[in-house]
Simulated assay, not measured.
Amino acid sequence: MNPIPIIHFGLGPIGQEIGRAAANEPRVTSVGAVDIAPELQEFTLNQVCDADLPALPIVPSLAQVQAPAGAVVLQATVSKLEQARNQLMAAIARGYHVVSTCEELVWPWEDHPQLARELDEAARKAGVTLLGVGVNPGMVMDTLPALVSRLVNAIERVHVARFVDVLERRVPLQEKNGLGKDPAWVQAQLDQGAMGHVGLKDSVWMLAAGLGWELDAVAVESRALVAQEGFESGLGWVAAGQCKGVRQEAQGLIAGDPRITMELVMEAGVAGGTRDELFITGDQTLHMRLTGIHGDKATAAIVINQALRIPAMPPGLQTMLTAPLAPKSQYET
């Protein structure tokens, strides 16, 4: 099997991590690199990623990349689907598949139905596939619970919890979760939708689809967490009384009953440490605890792994629920 040609689109911290993951995967080969940041365009792909990659120039536009139709764009640029649209349409127009870290692309059918249809129709017409991926949304709070749920009949409830000690993560994530800010200001930002995790509600809708449930609504509550004592962070000293993170909860409701509950805690020094937990209640009660996931490395891994699988997927806007478990070469002759 010839290596799959890939194009790196977005070379911020996640994009660089994807580059390093690509360097360790012989089944892909880098053929292009795109980023709009002028300071990155002064370097080559291997220099920016500090990895054994080709010395490709970093260009500001996908139109400047010379790659064959059927190449896979690894998009790591924005979280909002509206902002990602033009980049996705440019890739489709050139006959490229796309594996994207855009959180709102993981399950866009509820909040962005018109845009989802537009992208789906364009991709089908071009014969290419679009796939939104990630740790969360995209795997631990939706795809994985949907898969594990096949072990249980007569499911009554599903509870998914993700706890992340943001002191173990990069500074931008600490900033995104309000460390060191006035909790009242953070709460106002959360209430306005200007802060907080993107995609939690989408994970609820996605898991419901995997369970075959039709939800009436998804309710989300977000709360700023207040430090009881001071501590050092990547952003400097956080004093008692300042924000130390964010807790969000989303409920998938059927006839007013929260059949799906998702809890996401992004907190400095979170009690019990970084972990993921899953509870499924039905004819059995399952409890799964998963530790050791590093968000950035796991995101890069899933992007590369799905780049290997996207040629096996039908054209159009697909999701991780429709993604094959095996790469194409392992089951096609």
Rank of each mutant, 00 (worst) to 15 (best):
R169T: 12
L253I: 06
V218C: 13
D191E: 14
A208N: 03
Q187E: 10
P5I: 06
S222R: 14
R259I: 06
L144D: 05
V128N: 09
G134S: 08
T77V: 15
M139P: 00
K176R: 14
P258H: 08
G241L: 00
A126F: 06
L308H: 08
V164K: 04
P258Q: 11
R27Q: 14
V246N: 06
A90E: 15
T101P: 03
P57M: 12
G292C: 12
T44K: 05
I310F: 08
V220Y: 01
A71C: 14
L215E: 09
P314M: 13
E249A: 04
I92H: 09
R170Y: 04
D50P: 01
V164S: 10
H197F: 06
M141I: 14
V65E: 00
Q187G: 05
V303H: 00
P315E: 08
D202M: 13
H197I: 02
A255S: 13
D191G: 02
S233L: 01
G199H: 08
A255Y: 08
C243N: 15
L278W: 07
M288Q: 11
A312E: 09
P314S: 12
L74A: 10
V204F: 07
E229C: 01
D216F: 09
V28R: 01
V148W: 04
P38L: 07
A271M: 08
A307D: 00
Q114D: 11
N2I: 01
A217M: 05
H159Y: 11
Q87T: 14
L40D: 05
K201M: 10
P183V: 01
G178L: 06
F43G: 02
H8D: 00
A55G: 13
G273F: 11
G316A: 13
T143W: 06
V218A: 13
G199L: 03
L74G: 00
F231W: 10
L131H: 08
L56W: 03
N2C: 02
F9T: 05
D191N: 11
F231H: 10
R94F: 01
A123W: 09
P183T: 10
A69V: 04
D142Q: 07
G230W: 03
L74H: 04
M288H: 11
E277Q: 15
R124K: 15
E263N: 14
G32R: 00
R289K: 14
Q189E: 15
L105S: 11
G199M: 06
A23H: 02
I254Q: 15
M288G: 12
L215Q: 12
G138R: 00
H287M: 07
E121W: 06
D52T: 11
N46L: 03
P113E: 08
G199A: 05
G15Q: 06
H197N: 08
W185V: 11
G196D: 10
Q47D: 10
V106K: 06
H197D: 04
I304V: 15
A184Y: 02
V34M: 08
V171W: 01
A161N: 04
T261A: 04
E214P: 02
M313H: 09
G241W: 01
A146Y: 07
W109N: 10
I14P: 03
M1P: 08
